[in-house]
Amino acid sequence: MSAATGELRKSCMRECELVARSDGLAAGLGLALLGVDVLAVAPGRWAAVPSRQAPIGAKTRTHRLAEPEGIVFVACPGDRPQATPGLLRTGKLLAAVRLGLVRRLLDLAVEHLAGRTTGGEPLLSKQLLSGDIANVIADVELLRVYARCQHDLAAMAELHRQLGELGWQVTKLFGAIGYLADYPVRALYVAVLVADTWLAGEAAQ
């Protein structure tokens, strides 16, 4: 992997996805940012990092939902760089992390729904829900390939917008339990905040 050129091996993305799937958002983000000089690369005045990886001495701020996910925001003073190869690379790895997170929560959604019924039948037997689940996993497969193939920041911003939409499709599966602040779905809301610090750019709708 070359942080300087933004080139990335498929295996790095795969590893980020697997770690996020098995260990969650902060673990995945930690891997994606390994070796990244956060203060030099981050495009905005704040950058999301795992709490344990915050640069020593840097000013940080917390967020009610991000803090319990083990994520803080590091102040990045001064003029911010915009289109660096390092940023493209981080965007790709972060996309892989978000895909892993979607898988993690899709697994949980299916588990949650398996214990629920409607009209005496398992909720999962409803075709509307099977269709929703199928759409999510099909989009995971598509966006994974898409993430590998994109080579500019505008496309990366668009990809992250789609990942936000994908996260929402999974969130909806849970019903109101997914709107509770101390439930694992919280990570999907925090992922939007994280991506906002690393990639927000104006994406077409």
């Binding site: 005045r45 950058a47 925001f73 911003a157 905040l193 906002d196 990639l199 927000a200």
Partner: peptide, 19 residues
């Protein structure tokens, strides 16, 4: 509402939501 939220979250530039 959700689509607008998604647009708004990218419209104010990096770290716009924290600011």
């Amino acid at each position: 509402a959700v689509q607008t939220a998604r647009w708004a979250s990218s419209a104010l530039g990096p770290a716009g939501l924290l600011e």
